[in-house]
Amino acid sequence: MTVAPNNTTVGEVAEGAERPIIIRTLNLKKSYQMGKVVTHALRGITVEILRGEFLSVMGPSGSGKSTFFNMVGGLDSPTSGRVFIDEVDVAQLNAIELAFLRCRKIGYIFQTYNLVQYMTALENVTVPMAFAGVAGDDARQRGMDLLDLVGLKERWFHKPIEMSGGQQQRVAIARSMANNPQILLCDEPTGNLDLKTGAEIHAILKRLNVQRGVTVICATHDHRLIDMSDRIMWIRDGGIQRLARRDEVTVQAGAIGGEENE
């Protein structure tokens, strides 16, 4: 197994200088203080993600994937290090600019869905639109289209508690695309879906990636998704273990290069 010796090679790995960098992190660290115990969730991640790229993030449970996503998406503040989105330092943004970023630039699919419990599927999908100033029939129309996209058109009036985990996840996916974001941060978007639906979602993500040029960053354990990725990043113990282009990785049954059972 080859492990990326250090992070300086990252830039070289990305091919094609015509693709600008959309997200850049610089020695990103995050530690949680719980009483006297300090957990280092991220121990210094430096990575550059290109516009229109499909990046898969892999790593064992507790390795820091979700933490990394939160930092990149401007949902949490790092203990140290920096995140640049479109060359703008996220830490420098004020509250309104952050809201703008979260609302329009980035779509999130949370591992825990985080749907608003008292809203129907459609309402959940249209919430980000409301924050972007789209309301009324426009929003409803777009919301229905998005729900159609994830196959939940018939269930638009259901509340989260009335839906299965997979259905909720699909609502979350539809919501993440509400404002046509340039970046999709997906934290295990197909973790709760059957193979067929999972594949459909993968197809959707890929289509968005290819047709609209959306940058997709996806945490997953699913090998099929890795197949679609441009690059794969392995995280372990809060650090980048390996970062490789798709063609550098050989997919084997049960293990992929740099996989956790190394």
């Binding site: 479109d86 060359e87 703008v88 943004l93 309104i96 600019e97 809201a99 703008f100 970023l101 609302c103 329009r104 419990q117 008292y118 809203m119 409301a130 924050f131 972007a132 100033g133 309301a135």
Partner: peptide, 29 residues
Amino acid sequence: MKVIEVRDQVSLPLRRCFQLCVHGIQYRL
């Protein structure tokens, strides 16, 4: 350095806030 344009980040109209709020109350009746 690029600047983020915030002009479109609207505040919801009060009516909409009110709707959302009543909605929430109904749910957690």
